[in-house]
Measured scan of single mutants.
Amino acid sequence: LADDRTLLMAGVSHDLRTPLTRIRLATEMMSEQDGYLAESINKDIEECNAIIEQFIDYLR
């Protein structure tokens, strides 16, 4: 059971955070005209990261 939990934490961490990191990188490359959009996307990314952290904390 502990091994399954560790594997799940690693999978969640990698499989969800990697795309979020790519999205954040894309927002950094957006033009200044789209700053409001990038800010909104980054806020959503932070919310997703917080949910992931809560899930990982729960698994521990």
Rank of each mutant, 00 (worst) to 15 (best):
residue 1 L to F: 13
residue 1 L to N: 13
residue 1 L to E: 13
residue 1 L to Y: 11
residue 1 L to P: 13
residue 2 A to T: 14
residue 2 A to I: 15
residue 2 A to Y: 13
residue 3 D to T: 05
residue 4 D to Y: 10
residue 5 R to L: 09
residue 5 R to K: 10
residue 6 T to R: 02
residue 6 T to N: 03
residue 6 T to I: 14
residue 7 L to V: 10
residue 7 L to P: 08
residue 8 L to V: 12
residue 8 L to R: 11
residue 9 M to Q: 12
residue 9 M to A: 14
residue 9 M to L: 04
residue 10 A to Q: 02
residue 11 G to F: 15
residue 12 V to L: 10
residue 12 V to H: 06
residue 13 S to Q: 13
residue 14 H to Y: 02
residue 14 H to P: 03
residue 15 D to I: 15
residue 16 L to E: 02
residue 16 L to S: 13
residue 16 L to A: 13
residue 17 R to E: 04
residue 17 R to K: 00
residue 18 T to L: 09
residue 18 T to F: 13
residue 18 T to M: 13
residue 19 P to F: 11
residue 19 P to C: 00
residue 19 P to E: 00
residue 19 P to T: 11
residue 20 L to A: 07
residue 21 T to C: 04
residue 22 R to G: 07
residue 22 R to V: 05
residue 22 R to K: 02
residue 22 R to Y: 03
residue 23 I to F: 02
residue 24 R to I: 12
residue 25 L to G: 11
residue 25 L to V: 13
residue 25 L to I: 03
residue 26 A to K: 12
residue 26 A to D: 09
residue 27 T to K: 13
residue 27 T to E: 10
residue 27 T to G: 11
residue 27 T to M: 02
residue 28 E to T: 04
residue 28 E to R: 14
residue 28 E to H: 07
residue 28 E to A: 07
residue 29 M to K: 04
residue 29 M to L: 07
residue 30 M to A: 07
residue 31 S to K: 06
residue 32 E to L: 06
residue 32 E to Q: 06
residue 32 E to Y: 06
residue 32 E to K: 06
residue 33 Q to W: 00
residue 34 D to T: 13
residue 34 D to L: 10
residue 34 D to P: 13
residue 34 D to Y: 07
residue 34 D to A: 09
residue 35 G to D: 06
residue 35 G to R: 06
residue 35 G to T: 06
residue 36 Y to W: 08
residue 36 Y to H: 07
residue 36 Y to G: 15
residue 37 L to A: 07
residue 37 L to N: 10
residue 37 L to W: 00
residue 38 A to R: 02
residue 39 E to I: 12
residue 39 E to A: 13
residue 39 E to M: 08
residue 39 E to W: 08
residue 40 S to P: 12
residue 40 S to I: 14
residue 40 S to R: 02
residue 41 I to S: 13
residue 41 I to D: 15
residue 41 I to R: 03
residue 42 N to K: 00
residue 42 N to A: 15
residue 42 N to M: 00
residue 43 K to D: 02
residue 43 K to M: 04
residue 44 D to L: 07
residue 44 D to R: 04
residue 44 D to H: 10
residue 44 D to N: 13
residue 45 I to M: 02
residue 45 I to L: 15
residue 45 I to E: 04
residue 46 E to A: 14
residue 46 E to M: 03
residue 46 E to N: 14
residue 46 E to T: 12
residue 47 E to V: 04
residue 47 E to M: 03
residue 47 E to Y: 00
residue 48 C to D: 01
residue 49 N to C: 14
residue 49 N to R: 06
residue 49 N to T: 05
residue 50 A to V: 14
residue 50 A to Q: 11
residue 50 A to C: 10
residue 50 A to S: 09
residue 51 I to D: 11
residue 51 I to Y: 07
residue 52 I to D: 09
residue 52 I to N: 07
residue 55 F to H: 11
residue 55 F to C: 06
residue 55 F to Y: 03
residue 55 F to I: 10
residue 56 I to F: 07
residue 56 I to K: 14
residue 57 D to K: 10
residue 57 D to V: 05
residue 57 D to Q: 15
residue 57 D to C: 00
residue 59 L to M: 12
residue 59 L to I: 13
